[in-house]
Write a protein that binds this DNA or RNA. Structure first.
Lengths: 330, 330
DNA sequence: ATGAAAGCGCTAACAT
DNA sequence: ATGTTAGCGCTTTCAT
């Protein structure tokens, strides 16, 4: 910057004004500085800038996902990127893998880089350790699940409602023995969805049969194995609700392996690519990850603009998409 | 940091030494400083640190993808994240959407944050504008495609070889009229794959029929439409090779719509989730995005460690995965 | 409209 | 083993 000032024959402050697009510089001076910038291939140092500037802003946010390569998470990612891009902000992305320690490490690294805000898909556990950070003024929004033991903004899907609708849908097709596959209870979404299952049964006046419920499942293989167990039981379910997309795919594999994909009903939480091209096509409760991301980014930007109102919880609707697998009669 | 020094009753430099884990501080002093850090909830400022430090390193890299939410790209992302995580580095991720201008904007923003290195899936076009940056010492590796008009490290798949193998495979199943669906020629992978198609035909002694080739396709819908055109022609192809995963899915839809999915052979470039559960299951030429990412990160870290040797080009093998759609006889 | 100088949080050189 | 000081690139007073 000093070089630019020297070449343009102006003072340091003037270059700073030009670089930051501030008023109070004559057009000729701007042009001179601009050409010096171009000639020297000068690149503004945002880090140094934020160090000195009053608001301390780095125009940078941190995004913590369960896994950047998970399709649901990466759709969230894209929506958030697009939303903050307009403000010239860049996003640090990281994967926590549902690991609380990894989450803390990443947040610590992000803090050290002085990100303006944080969008977090929280791992299970206690997030009260973020209270000082929150109070300090770092904008923070949780997505997909609320933070544990921390009063902070959250944007989530209507998990219970979605699964409730799925159960009701299957009941309407004559099913009474409906199995359920769920992820680790510690994850808020998993326990809310299980609640929805129980509510759905209750509304239909069906007693809960614990033997039809498999929780703590993680990934396709475990979904497949759990489905196999359900199907092998004395009184197997006539339909299954799966609480997560990889579990759904596992369930499909198990059904296929037994030639039961057209006999046993199936509704999965989360839409996925090609669900409509499988046979039968898969009925799902579709979340809208892009919408979740947009709303989260919107809230974050509000906070960054100084909004200090009480924390908000936004619940996005989900949609049951009938495609075939959920319309198999009992 | 000044506060920490005051509370611990030591000098600034000593706190810096402790924070950076440098030798030459007595165990007691370290403990005292550490406890002051904890008490004050002090967080090191990496930006300020890099400003003053000799090597200027920010422990940060930039990753430019076509789209962070594209499954192939996000797998790359994850592999790179994992590789640099061990060094305590964070990654800025961004989507260029095959848009050269967007790429420049992002790179400019990353430069302004003084990233140590760049991993880029380049949009079509001229990348010589990065030469000053490269010379200046920013580590830079291109993945999936080489940079245009810039001599820089690149990690790519064997695109031509993969499509050649696909054609040979179809020929072995009796096909002579093989259609091809490809993306925009400006993208290196698209033109290399088209080359592979022509090579495969040439090796089989089959004359190229331009009417069987559809290029400049973008996305599922265009893939479907192009397939429809091929199938509606006077002498339709008995098999199709698709040069990209979304085009493949489009082709499947078109075949299904005409009930031809068991008559017309299909091999797609890029594996995708559920390709094995479709009927018929889809034969693909599988790339290994995680391996591409690992190799790219490896190269980048070498450069970051000061390697100034001539630029390297690493080509990763691809694998033809026969699943059914590619084994339909002519 | 412009410039000079102070100082953001830190590391490195030089003290001791 | 530890402290003092200069200065990284920048923005912000406060001058003029």
């Amino acid at each position: 910057m000093l070089d630019v000032a020297a070449l343009a024959g102006v003072g340091l402050a003037t270059v700073s004004r030009v670089v930051n697009g501030k008023a109070g510089v004559s057009a000729v001076t701007v042009a001179r500085v601009q050409s010096a910038i171009d000639r020297l291939d000068y690149r503004h140092n945002v880090n140094a800038s934020s160090l000195r500037r009053l608001d301390r802003k780095t125009a940078t946010i941190g995004l913590l996902l369960e896994d950047v390569s998970n399709p649901f998470m990466s759709s969230l990612h894209r929506a958030i990127e697009d939303a903050v891009r307009e403000r010239g902000m860049l996003v640090f992305a990281g994967s926590c893998d549902e690991n609380a320690e990894r989450e803390r490490e990443l947040i610590s690294a992000l803090r050290a880089r002085r990100v303006d805000g944080l969008v977090v898909v929280p791992a299970a556990g206690d997030h009260s350790y973020l209270l000082p950070e929150l109070r300090h003024g770092t904008a923070m929004v949780f997505v997909d699940r609320p933070a544990g033991f921390l009063d902070a903004d959250a944007v989530v899907s209507d998990n219970a409602g979605g699964v409730r609708a799925a159960v009701t849908h299957l009941v309407a097709h004559g099913h009474r023995r409906i199995g359920y596959l769920g992820a680790v209870r510690g994850i808020a979404t998993a326990s809310e969805r299980l609640d929805g299952y129980q509510q759905g049964l209750a509304r239909a006046g069906i007693a809960l049969d614990e033997r039809l419920v498999r929780m703590e499942l993680n990934g396709m293989a475990e979904g497949e194995a759990a489905t196999a167990v359900l199907l092998a039981a004395g009184e197997p379910p006539t339909a299954i609700v799966s609480g997560q997309n990889f579990l759904t795919i596992g369930a499909i594999k198990a059904l296929r392996a037994r030639g039961l994909q057209r006999q046993v009903g199936l509704v999965g939480f989360d839409d996925f690519l090609l669900a409509d091209l499988l046979e039968p096509a898969v009925t799902v409760i579709a979340q809208d990850p892009a919408e979740l991301g947009r709303r989260a980014a919107e809230l974050l930007l509000l906070r960054l603009d100084g909004d200090r109102s009480p924390s908000r919880r936004i619940e996005c609707p989900v949609e049951l998409v009938p495609r075939g697998s959920g319309e198999i009669a009992a």
